[in-house]
């Protein structure tokens, strides 16, 4: 068996929802899960025996610790790599050299790049300290927001509504790639099959697409993904880092999860 721990923040949910489908498609894989309280590295303690424990009570029903000493791979998902700060800058200021957005003040594109550099560097250093650069660890950035995110939820999308979003995304992505390349962790960027447009996930893999009938989506339902995403993302992870391919399947893990069908 190949034991894989999926840890991270609320984005762990997509993999938890796909758990049955993953284990059915990858019968040699054994999964375990852990979510950091408050999504914060500092909320946890990683002891010398390899046990990661919550320092504060987790939400009810969530595990309060995970033994990482026995796993073969650790997939750390949902990492923001400091996107929020960059998004806030772009939200509050025009960027000289990019399309004006009617803000009262501007900042330079050089400042935007320096800011990304500063924040991502810090983020990666925190990340490195957190699991002590354990080479079993592969880090995945948080999924891109869904391509059909409505206007009322667009604040959650960061800079993606900006006319020059592609350029801003490239600045951020390149910075993440550069800094992660110096860590012993692997970096798993969002697979092309799960990208609908620059910095956007396909609508059908967002939670908003698989909510029960009659349930109105919230903004978070466009930034958090469903079991289809979890399954597809894990499959890409398994291909790249475990050398495994899924057994054939015909149905959507999110439909299976939603309808309680279990693995097919």
């Amino acid at each position: 068996m190949t034991r894989v721990a999926i840890i991270g923040n609320s984005h762990v949910g997509a993999y938890l929802q796909a758990r049955d489908a993953i284990e059915a498609a990858f019968p040699t894989v054994e999964l375990s899960f852990f979510a950091l309280p408050r999504h914060s590295f500092s909320s946890c303690c990683y002891d010398a025996d390899g046990v990661l424990s919550a320092q504060e009570p987790p939400a009810s029903g969530l595990p309060d610790q995970i033994d990482l000493s026995t796993v073969d791979r650790i997939l750390m998902v949902g990492q923001s790599f400091a996107r929020e700060g960059l998004a806030r800058l772009v939200r509050d200021f025009d960027v000289l050299g990019l399309a004006p957005q009617g803000r009262a003040r501007s900042v330079s594109l050089a400042l935007i790049s320096d800011y990304a550099e500063f924040r991502v560097d810090r983020y990666c250093r925190k990340l490195a300290r957190f699991l002590r650069e354990d080479p079993r660890c592969v880090v995945a950035p948080a999924p891109f927001p869904a391509v059909d995110m409505p206007d009322w939820a667009c604040e959650q999308a960061g800079w993606l509504d900006h006319p020059d979003a592609e350029q801003l995304t490239a600045i951020w992505s390149d910075t993440v790639l550069w800094h992660m390349s110096s860590l012993k962790y692997g970096l798993m960027t969002q697979p092309a099959s799960l990208v609908a447009a620059s910095g956007r996930s396909p609508a059908e893999v967002a939670r908003a697409a698989s909510l029960p009938d009659g349930q109105a989506p919230t903004a978070a339902d466009f930034t958090h993904m469903n079991a289809d995403y979890g399954f597809a993302h894990f499959s890409a992870f398994a291909h790249n880092w475990l050398g495994l391919e899924p057994d054939g399947r015909t149905t959507s893990p999110s439909k299976e999860h939603h309808h309680g069908l279990g693995p097919q």
Binding site: L96, G97, A104, R105, S106, S108, L109, A110, L111
Partner: peptide, 22 residues
């Protein structure tokens, strides 16, 4: 204040105008 400079002269003008306004 812009250690790398700005991309165009117009950007400098805009930045200065905003500075004066502030």
């Amino acid at each position: 204040v812009e250690p790398e400079g700005l991309g165009t002269a117009d950007e400098v003008r805009q930045s200065r105008a905003e500075h004066m306004l502030a």
